[in-house]
């Protein structure tokens, strides 16, 4: 790009579009622009200064300040550490384990009781198992927290 030449019109168009700081112009044209400026520092410099004056005014357009409440809302809505997911999974696993144990306990109890009650029906066995399931639900919450 170093051999690239730039017309005076293009120089002025660039100043009008991108402002008075050549460093903010499209990179491929900067070097040629600086070379052209050296040839006519007064004439082109005047245009650059006029563009820079507008740049300085544009910099005064309010940008707004970050409000602490906005920052707080965004921080609290941000993703949580993945470790909490593992804790939840571990808690669920523990709860399931307890549930299985409870169901096994209920089943054993029912079978042992069956020695005394020959007419134990399948419905009664299922009902006992469901009771065990409810017990695991109550265990799940503290384990997951």
């Amino acid at each position: 790009m170093s051999e690239m030449s730039l017309s005076r019109d293009r120089f002025l168009a660039l100043a009008e579009a991108y402002g008075g700081d050549i460093a903010r112009w499209p990179e491929p044209e900067r070097e040629a622009a600086r070379a052209l400026l050296l040839q006519d520092p007064q004439g082109l410099g005047h245009h650059l200064e006029a563009a820079a004056a507008l740049d300085r005014l544009l910099d005064l357009a309010p940008a707004g300040a970050v409000d602490a409440a906005l920052l707080g809302r965004l921080v609290s809505a941000a993703p949580r550490p993945a470790a909490s997911a593992w804790r939840w999974i571990a808690g669920l696993g523990a709860a399931l384990g307890l549930g299985v144990s409870a169901m096994a306990g209920v089943t054993v109890g029912v079978v042992l009781a069956g020695h005394d009650r020959e007419d134990l029906s399948a419905d009664a066995l299922i009902a006992s198992s469901v009771d065990g399931g409810d017990a695991t639900d109550s265990l799940e919450e503290p384990a997951a927290s």
């Binding site: 921080v75 993703p79 550490p81």
Partner: peptide, 18 residues
């Protein structure tokens, strides 16, 4: 941020929110 690092959240907000 995706891993839930709170310091990264603050740093990214400091850098990009304004």
């Amino acid at each position: 941020v995706g891993r839930g690092d709170p310091r990264a959240v603050r740093q990214l907000l400091d850098r990009r929110l304004p």
